[in-house]
Write a protein that binds this DNA or RNA. Structure first.
Lengths: 167, 167
DNA sequence: TATTGTTATACTCTATAACTATA
DNA sequence: TATAGTTATAGAGTATAACAATA
């Protein structure tokens, strides 16, 4: 019956009101639930995100992806390799050194299934928030993201994009 | 003059309205800015969080921390070791196998400096959000966190706490 | 030569299994 | 034996440096 023997009841939570703490906590929980939902498709959130993005930007290059998703180009290599190996991603015509990436027919089929999972997941995690509030929430998150990137300190070492998230 | 040569202007963002995407994006940006702020104190966000938590819960054990912060006990070991080595953490009297942890005088001094950094950081990232909206934001984040943990799928493998975040 | 793609690598975070110590 | 602490380790995720290829 798995009793937790020494569960103290006088624990103080010094982070109760901190946006930063709740942001991280919630972000982790949401990412974990998305990973669980994607498991039947044999994709993790990173791979699924890449698949969706390329589906929406057929012909884009690795550099384009790197810029759009705030990822290091080097870290995309294993993801692209896996998706290519599985046969959902095609390396198209070269544009200079760059290579145009696009989805194969199998990739498009998988894309649609991934899209369904993302949409269902999004509805699920947002089910306690009225529609109007969701827009407000996304706007607040964008504002915070912008402010965090514009922080007084030296941000040269900070990899998160220095340009505004969205106009 | 570092021109980005092939910055495409026809890039589509398929995640524009997704709460999950903005949550993660913003959480990463906020964590990075906090890490930058903590650099002068030679602490990373994990270590600083641990220091603040023990400061608020003097005499707690490693198990207490593990439960409260949703961390694996094994992963706390290097953090506790570092804080002990630096001389800010003291291993107090044993309660059975457990060891009561508390801050040394130097630890209390560092705690106060960390608290200042956290408070300043919190004000900074929230500066675009009116006070009333911040409470609303935290409430929404808590609701989402709860919903994500209660997801239909099998959550046995999901490490994020299954108990409600706060009453 | 500048940009792009790639490899290798390292560091952090996180998760599990196995071991030790104590009531 | 159950709980607590620890060790070792493996796997993501993310960062940098260096190299190859192409205009």
């Amino acid at each position: 019956m798995e009793t937790v023997q020494s569960a103290r009841s006088d624990i103080v939570d010094p982070f109760g009101d901190m946006i930063s703490y709740h942001l991280r906590r919630t972000s982790v929980a949401v990412l974990n639930s998305l990973a669980a939902e994607l498991q039947p498709l044999a994709l993790n959130p990173s791979e699924a995100t890449l698949l969706l993005w390329i589906g929406a930007n057929s012909g884009a290059t690795q550099s384009d992806i790197s810029r759009a998703l705030n990822a290091k180009a080097a870290n995309l290599v294993p993801l692209i390799n896996k998706l290519s190996l599985v046969g959902v991603l095609e390396r198209g015509p070269k544009k200079g050194r760059a290579i145009a990436l696009s989805l194969s027919p199998a990739g498009i089929a998988l894309h649609d299934r991934v899209k369904q999972v993302f949409d269902r997941h999004e509805r699920s995690i947002g089910r306690s928030i009225p529609q109007a509030k969701r827009r407000e929430l996304v706007d607040m998150l964008n504002a915070i993201c912008r402010d965090a990137c514009r922080f007084p300190q030296d941000l040269a070492a900070n990899s998160v994009d220095a340009e505004q998230p969205r106009s």
